[in-house]
Nucleic acid binder design. Structure first.
Lengths: 238, 238
DNA sequence: AGTGATTTGTACGTATGTATG
DNA sequence: ACATACATACGTACAAATCAC
């Protein structure tokens, strides 16, 4: 762990503990540099991370105001997975694997991101229960050329991301995602006990590794009354 | 404009023009430092911006791969406003002001962000047409202590953000937003010609200025079949 | 209104470590 | 083993915004 990462995490902890209260200023960059015995650049790097994620707001000539918006946000945002989500909240959850088989690349993936016609993918369908009700149906298309052997059912029931990152040592890096509303398909209707004219919320993601190779397409179908997405966003200059 | 901002914008342009093609590497940091005649740190700062926004992916020992995902994203994400959105796409659009009046702070805002009971707000309701159909109903609550006189109807029909930033010289900085689905209310039903059991997508935002003062609450009600939200997201470490 | 002290923002140069090919 | 390229870290200098006196 680098110095700036440690310092960033440390300041974040102190915000949570109330040592740096919300609405007040952090110590100045120079003060922090002295207390951590690092250069001012290292403090600034640590603070940049906190600013990007909504923990502080910096203002020239004034200082760094503590925000701590992370309290409110339900992290379906970013790339956080269902398992991680479940652990961060206290819900009783269960996952069932509905399908787990090798298929040729679906049409909507061919051509994009170097995917060739007929290229093998693993198609995984899982239902997610919270408090006894199925609230999400996940479709994953995993690129066989990256993950090789496929995913054992017993792992698919827990967390495929943990498996990829820790067992296969893959570095999942970024995703392009969209949120749209669609009519429920047959599986959605059956699993979530809804009708053909009911809408579900789809979160569709193209997921990439650290070297920018395409690796996974996911379509998460959320029961409309159980869906919530929250994020912290900064205004970008026009 | 600072050097790193200029360089960042310049590289972005060159990506759009195909001078730096998607899938290829940018010149090395040292090469770019020479061509722009700046230090390597300045190049790195410029590239950090491009990496955060999904234009490039950097990899140690290898280089910076051009991604350019901005092509795909429909920027309801971030803090981009309807007006800016409309200009970036080529749709025929119209805005109608349904209501524009001074009200005491609504209950759901009192207590948060230093809002006091009875504090004056401007409540603005606007409908947004695209291609002749109303697809969005926007509710804005604007803090009178910040914007003073209120917003003239003829400005509300165009862009309130442009007015705030350019006329009132306010620096809009960040927002905390959530996306949820709700049943259509009376105004939604009337304006979008939908029924009481139909769902709409609500995008609710708390918006803040550069000094972290709360300034605006917005609730955008989107017709469900016209809603789309897209974003580029990086995986955050657990 | 003004001056100086404080604080953040940008920029440069250098050194060292680490991953890639 | 080697060169290349990115990542971190330090120190310095100056600019710009803020605040207190």
């Amino acid at each position: 762990m680098y110095k700036f990462e440690f310092i960033s995490a440390d300041i974040q902890d102190k915000i949570h503990q109330g040592i740096y209260p919300v609405g007040r200023l952090l110590p100045s960059e120079n003060d922090l540099a002295k207390t951590y015995d690092v250069s001012r650049e290292t403090i600034r790097k640590a603070q940049k991370k906190l600013e990007d994620t909504g923990f502080i707001q910096k203002k020239q000539g004034k200082g760094a105001i503590v925000l701590d918006f992370a309290r409110f946000s339900f992290p379906i945002s970013g790339l956080t997975s269902y398992k991680e989500l479940q652990e961060s909240q206290q819900f009783h959850t269960a996952t069932r694997v509905l399908s787990n088989k090798r298929v040729p690349a679906p049409d909507f993936l061919v051509g994009e991101d170097g995917v060739e016609a007929g290229e093998p993918f693993i198609h995984l369908i899982r239902s997610r229960e919270m408090e006894g009700e199925t609230v999400i149906v996940d479709h994953d298309y995993l690129r066989v050329s990256v993950i090789q052997d496929g995913v054992p059912d017993e792992i698919a029931e827990v967390s495929i991301y943990q498996y990829f990152e820790q067992e296969l040592d893959l570095q999942i890096s970024f995703a392009n995602k969209e949120i749209v509303a669609k009519k429920a398909d047959d599986i959605d209707q059956k699993e979530m006990a809804i009708g053909p004219d009911d809408f579900i919320i789809q979160v569709n993601s193209h997921v990439y590794l650290e070297d920018a190779t395409f690796f996974q397409y996911t379509s998460s179908h959320h029961r409309i009354d159980k869906f919530r997405f929250a994020e912290f966003a900064r205004r970008t200059a026009q």
